[in-house]
């Protein structure tokens, strides 16, 4: 199962190769969905496809190395009551997380979403919302 984990680094920790060492020690293969590191530290959003035990282990290890960790359940929300399946968002989605199923309904695959937010303003009835990670 794929779970999404957001790491928050302090300025001090940003210089240490924490992600690399966790990968090396646990053997997980995370996909980096989003990363921003600046003068005030930074954030990295990972998608980890592994067993729950392995992911829990990796989370513990990140915490031990001094990184704040939060699991992200859902950041983009599609209000299916308001959405009328026009599909304006679909061709803007870089990862096909937004797609049209066989009967023409617009669907969101959370696992593929990288939270780029491109789709949000394209919705003619504001049925897509991007919530903050924290």
């Amino acid at each position: 199962m794929t779970r999404k984990v957001l790491l928050r680094y302090s300025t001090k920790k940003a210089t240490e190769p924490i992600l690399a060492s966790v990968i090396k020690e646990t053997g997980i293969l995370p996909n980096i969905l989003y990363a921003e590191v600046g003068t005030k530290g930074g954030e990295i959003l990972l998608a980890i496809d592994a067993s729950d035990a392995e992911i829990d282990g990796a989370i513990e290890l990140f915490k031990k190395k001094g990184v704040e960790v939060k699991e992200v359940k859902r950041a983009i929300e599609l209000d299916e009551d308001s959405c009328f399946d026009c599909g304006a968002c679909i061709s803007l989605c870089p990862t096909s997380a937004l797609y049209m199923d066989k009967d023409g309904s617009v669907k969101l695959d959370d696992n593929k979403c990288i939270y780029c937010g491109l789709c949000v303003p394209s919705c003619p009835v504001h049925a897509l919302k991007l919530s903050k990670f924290w």
Partner: peptide, 19 residues
């Protein structure tokens, strides 16, 4: 959902709702 333009597959949005 896909149209080819200059040899590249391009994603398509309908704008009007077929459903």
């Amino acid at each position: 959902g896909k149209v080819e333009i200059h040899g590249k597959e391009v994603p398509v949005s309908p704008l009007s709702s077929i459903k």
